[in-house]
Design a protein around this nucleic acid. Structure first.
Lengths: 335, 335
DNA sequence: TCGAATTCTGCAAACCTTTGTAGATTAAAG
DNA sequence: CTTTAATCTACAAAGGTTTGCAGAATTCGA
């Protein structure tokens, strides 16, 4: 049991706890010789500062929370990993909570963190969470907020999101450059801002290349593998020679359909996904994908949170660029 | 700023803080009507218990730490995810730390957690950590320890590991049943207990089937994809018709070599990996693999930690069974 | 109706650190 | 040798909760 306190040190040296506290805290008003003696004795007795007591005095923990839908999704775990590195260096501990896409769990997590008196919260909200009201309520008492990836508007604090428009734009442009002529799109519900932005990027790239938009080859229910398979069939039927997909799994579905039908990829059919999941480099043919750079999202979100807590900003909106990773599934000789 | 305290509630009701505290804590000695009034007033004033203060009084945080090499490795993030669910239900927060396989970071993490006065630590040690000495030192003061996956012997507390012997045994048996006759093994350094156990399981399965062990088709440097490719070549050269691998990535390498050479999988060459990485179900042919059930490891580790903290045990050694996931890469008609 | 048992509540200390204020000591200046 | 300034240290309160002990109120049996 370690229970050496500054009182023990003070007693051993015949001085008071306040002096010991100041000596340890680096207060310049304490004599050098005293400071040395204190440090010496502290080490000798195996003193360990009681963080809880010092937190109580200051009213705030040296911890921050991160709330994500699912920890084990590679996108989120990469963000967490990067954020942890930044926060650890700054002397903050990271408390982790997951919502399983569920509003109730999100509220629970917010309450827990606010109860612990964390200095701030990094949040990517659950699908089941339809407005930011409960978040607004939970972040009283000076708790700072950084939203990343999935963002509600109208909340205080900072945000970090991907530049989805440009990601989709450069993806589509990549397909055009490779000589594909009739490029279909896989996307999700356009009510979600992220999907909308990607769709806009896709449209803009077509427009800039003088290719008319054909809404019959835009598939707005393509976020899972099965639908990718089905919509891949439809796309081929409608004469597409390439697909830009908002996700890797739906792109994989289309790839599987093509292989099943003996359609050659990339020669006759180009496929490009989004997220750069691990498997994209491991399957055959390997799949071109848009890397979202989750580590950078995590780093920026953590740094933004530190700035909020230090009072260096009242809120900022950061974007993280995406990176095109070209692979075999679009690697055909220029048209 | 929420700064309603039990003192405010007490004052508003004309009673004392101690009664309020007891009422809120569910102490049976407080009158039902008083308790109701307290709860009512607490809600009315928006009271939020100051966890820091209560921790200071009790000397212990309602938090536990988890230390892993890398958060974003799917095996570990699944463990973390499952552990979080158990701990959250029990009212504990989970603080996350990563070592990046580095001893220095591991020591830092241990010190941080011990400084925060967590109730316990779940740990899978870094490769760079060669003995448990620094762990021993850090877990003074009643902090409980659960080691999982990578375990040092001789430390207090509990452990949770896979049943590697049986996993390898049933994997090898699966290959034998499918009619493969000459089964090679991919493994890592046998100084690591985990690899040793798997190797023993492989040997036992051969022995039970009356197949003599041939050390020339045991490849002890096969944990990465590249070596899997190279050793896949050697194995085929030596007449193997199947490979049991301690990892999925090296198995993938062998699979790629077979495909490059036109060797048919599973007809002429069976391949079986370990870890059941995402990609194993996504590649073609899909790969049979040993699932390690990381979620179960996480669940058991968290439960074991709770039992330690509640004083229900002084230490236990749990194993998690593995599960064979049969897929195309070994799916040939019985020889 | 009285005493004892039971149920309930208050007092005050304890958890350990930080910090404003005031007092003490030393050094420098007159 | 005294005054002023500069440097250092002590005192005590504050931060909010929990809990052992004692005392008050209530209930019950006799």
């Amino acid at each position: 049991m370690t229970k050496v306190t500054i009182i023990d040190i003070a007693r051993a040296l015949g001085i008071t706890p306040s002096t010991v506290s100041r000596a340890l805290a680096g207060n310049p008003y304490v004599k050098e010789s005293t400071r040395e003696a204190v440090k010496q004795k502290a080490k000798e007795l195996g003193y360990e500062r009681n963080v809880i007591a010092s937190n109580l005095r200051s009213g705030r923990t040296h911890a921050v929370g991160i709330i994500v839908p699912r920890i084990h999704r590679s996108f989120f775990s990469s963000i967490i990993s990067a954020a942890e590195e930044v926060l650890d260096k700054a002397g903050y501990s990271l408390i982790i909570c997951q919502t399983r896409e569920n509003l109730q769990d999100e509220i629970r997590a917010l309450n827990t963190l606010s109860g612990i008196r964390v200095g701030g919260i990094m949040l990517s909200h659950a699908i089941g969470s339809k407005s930011g009201k409960h978040i607004q309520e939970a972040i009283h008492g000076g708790i700072k907020l950084v939203q990343f990836d999935r963002v509600f508007e109208g909340l205080p604090g900072s945000t970090v999101t991907n530049d989805d428009f440009n990601g989709a734009y450069s993806a589509t442009k990549h397909l055009i450059k490779r000589g594909y002529k009739r490029i279909g799109a896989f996307t999700g519900p356009l009510s979600t801002k992220m999907f909308l932005n990607r769709y806009e990027g896709y449209k803009k790239a077509l427009e800039d290349a003088g290719i008319p938009l054909d809404e019959t080859i835009v598939f707005k229910d393509s976020i899972i593998r099965e639908n990718g398979y089905l919509n891949g069939a439809k796309a081929l039927e409608k004469g597409c020679d390439a697909i830009y997909s908002s996700g890797d799994y739906s792109a994989l579905g289309a790839l599987e359909f093509a292989k099943d039908q003996g359609v050659r990829v990339p020669e006759d059919f180009g496929i490009l996904g989004t997220a750069n999941e691990d498997f994209t480099s491991l399957i055959s043919p390997s799949m071109t994908s848009i890397e979202q750079n989750p580590r950078e999202i995590g780093t920026k979100a953590a740094q933004a949170l530190l700035r909020l807590m230090y009072g260096e900003t009242a809120g900022e909106h950061l974007t993280v660029e995406t990176t095109l990773i070209p692979r075999e599934s679009t690697d055909r000789k220029n048209g």
